[in-house]
């Protein structure tokens, strides 16, 4: 059983780049293009790992450590997430806070490295990143608070494994609200379209991409891989929340989970295809809206 628990992190480490490939294929489908292969990111990573890193003379060691810290944080974070009823390898009371701050630490490392380059554009990106992160964090914690109130304060694995069809019947509204809120959080944290465009390379508007402009070779590979793991983490949170795993047969849970992940990716692809990027001033509005969704869920939980 203990070995089985490691299947989730292993699956995440192996399959995460595939998920971004799926998003790109969906976007290509909507644009009427053939699109890159779903395995494209694997090729990219392989190519980048064979190159050498180049560092600007104006940088210090911070930028050299940055990508490793980011990757380590993301890899650790995947070990906290469960896979339906199958518990995560690392689970203890309050592990959600560790999860949140691993993500926070990764962001901190990215921001520090971006500032380390001394480029004004990267500074702008860093400033935006922390501004939006500050607005995005409440929706994560408020959603978690709803879960904690509903299932008692325990490990993430335990709380998530208790979501069943009955939970949907008695308090489906909560799950929908928190699910929507976390989906917006997913789009924000992974710099997807309504908030940030992963394909843009216009320094004045981008947020996350601008912070990683100065990386090359293995460092860039680390960053790209960490970004795909981050996408996997948030999608796994949403899927674990929305799919009533408790009511499914144990052998069905992993396939259904993977199916759910693919579904979330397709959804992200559709959102990216049909929505335009928001103006920068409007992003806080969306983030406050997401936090409000969780807040309403909290009110319904407390008063309803």
């Amino acid at each position: 059983m203990n070995a089985l628990r490691w299947t989730f992190p292993l699956a995440a480490w192996v399959l995460a780049p595939l998920m971004l490939g799926i998003i790109n294929r969906v976007k290509a489908f909507f644009a009427g293009r053939q699109g890159p292969s779903v395995w494209q990111l694997y090729y990219d990573l392989f190519k980048l790992l064979q190159k050498a890193s180049v560092y600007s003379r104006s940088t210090s060691t911070v930028i050299r450590i940055g990508p490793s810290v980011v990757l380590a944080c993301m890899a650790l974070a995947t070990t906290i997430l469960p896979w339906g009823e199958l518990q995560a390898p690392v689970t203890f009371v309050g592990d959600i806070i560790l999860l949140a701050y691993l993500l926070g630490l990764a962001r901190f490392a990215t921001v520090l490295s971006a500032l380390d380059t001394g480029s004004s554009f990267e500074g702008m990106g860093a400033s935006r990143e922390v501004q939006f992160a500050a607005l995005a964090e409440p929706s994560f914690f408020l959603g978690m608070l709803v879960l904690v109130l509903h299932f008692g304060f325990s490990g993430l694995s335990k709380m998530v494994s208790e979501i069943s069809l009955e939970t949907w019947q008695t308090s489906g509204v909560l799950l929908i609200l928190v699910g929507c809120s976390w989906f917006i959080l997913l789009l924000t944290e992974n710099s997807r379209i309504p908030v940030d465009d992963p394909n843009t390379h216009l320094e004045l508007t981008m947020i996350h991409e601008v912070m990683v402009l100065d990386y090359g070779g293995p460092d860039l590979a680390f960053i790209l891989y960490a970004a795909s793991l981050k996408m996997w983490i948030f999608a796994a949170l949403v899927v674990n929340l929305v799919v009533p795993m408790h009511s499914l047969a144990p052998w069905l849970q992993a396939p259904i989970f993977l199916l759910g992940m693919v579904f979330v990716m397709v959804l992200v692809g559709i959102v990216e295809s049909i929505l335009a990027r928001l103006r920068l001033q409007q992003i806080p509005k969306v983030l406050i809206g997401a936090a409000l969704l969780s807040l309403i869920a909290l009110i319904v939980r407390l008063m309803g």
């Binding site: 001033q281 509005k285 406050i288 809206g289 936090a291 009110i299």
Partner: peptide, 21 residues
Amino acid sequence: GFGPSLLCGTALLGLAVWITD
């Protein structure tokens, strides 16, 4: 503005909860 309006909305929501409570 619309962003601050939403923030005020949060406060109003809190006020509504308080009144009901």
